[in-house]
Design a protein around this nucleic acid. Structure first.
Lengths: 114, 114
DNA sequence: AAATCATTTCGTTATTTTGCGAAATAATGG
DNA sequence: CCATTATTTCGCAAAATAACGAAATGATTT
C-alpha cells in the first residue's frame, strides 16, 4: 500500500527559504544584514561582491520574493533591509527542524550511554 | 574602489547545506530523520513520497554528498541515518546566522547556550 | 528638455537540477 | 546458477538557475 504523504505547507515554506538561501552571494547578503544589523544599498554590494549589477539585482529579487528582505526606495538609491517578521519566522522554522526530538535528554545524560 | 570581498569558506559551506536542503523531498527526509530520531530505508521513503525510486535515490545522494546523512548497508536494505556530527555543525551554522548580531562562534559552542 | 545616476528588466547563453524509465549492481533464496 | 528484491546508475528531456551586457526605467540635476 503506497500510502503517499502530502508534503506539508510548512516544509514547502521552508524549502522556499532554503532555496533562497542556497547561493553564496545571497547568503552573504543575508549574513551582512543580520549581523551588521543594518541595511545596505545595491551599489555597495556590487562593489564588494564578485558579480555584475544585473546579476546582483536578480539575487536581491529572489531574496525579496522569498520574503527575507525588503527594499525601501530612497532616491536615487534603494535601501535593502531584512524583513524582520519573516526572518524571525525563518529562525523559528530552523529552530524547529534542528530541535532534538521530544523524547530526549532529561538530566544531561546522553541516551545510549552508561 | 571596488574592494571585492572573498566569500568566506563558512558561507560556502553553508551554501552547500542550504542547497542540499532546498528541495521539499530532501527537507522531508531530514525532518523525519531528525524528529523521529530514527533511521529509515529507501523503500519506506519511496512508498510515502511522491517521487520514483531513481529520483529518490538522487535526492539521497545529494544529502549524502552534503554530509547530512549517511547510509549503512544492511542487506538487502540500506539504512539511512542523520550524520550527527554534520547535523550539529549545520545547527551551529544556522544558529550563528540567525543570532542577533552577537559575537561570532569560532569553536563548537554557541554563546548563550548551556 | 537633456544629461546623469542607480537600479532593473530583457535577451541570450551555459550550466545545473529534477524527473523518469530502463538497465546495471549487489545480495539472498531456491 | 537463476530468480527475486532493493537500490543505484545511465541516458535522456524539460525546466530552472546563474551570469552577462545592452537597453529600459525612474528620479534628479543642469
Amino acid at each position: 500500500m503506497p500510502k503517499k504523504v502530502k508534503i506539508s505547507p510548512e516544509i514547502i515554506e521552508m524549502a522556499t527559504l532554503t532555496k533562497a538561501m542556497s547561493h553564496p552571494v545571497r547568503l552573504y547578503i543575508l549574513q551582512k544584514l543580520a549581523h551588521m544589523n543594518t541595511c545596505c544599498y545595491s551599489g555597495d554590494l556590487v562593489d564588494e561582491l564578485p558579480v555584475g549589477r544585473s546579476t546582483l539585482s536578480q539575487h536581491l529579487k529572489e531574496l525579496k520574493y522569498a520574503g527575507l528582505i525588503q527594499g525601501e526606495t530612497e532616491p536615487p538609491y534603494i535601501k535593502y533591509c531584512l524583513n524582520r517578521e519573516n526572518w524571525d519566522r525563518a529562525r523559528s522554522l530552523f529552530n524547529e527542524l534542528f530541535s532534538e526530538s521530544e523524547i530526549m535528554v532529561t538530566e544531561g545524560r546522553i541516551p545510549g550511554t552508561q
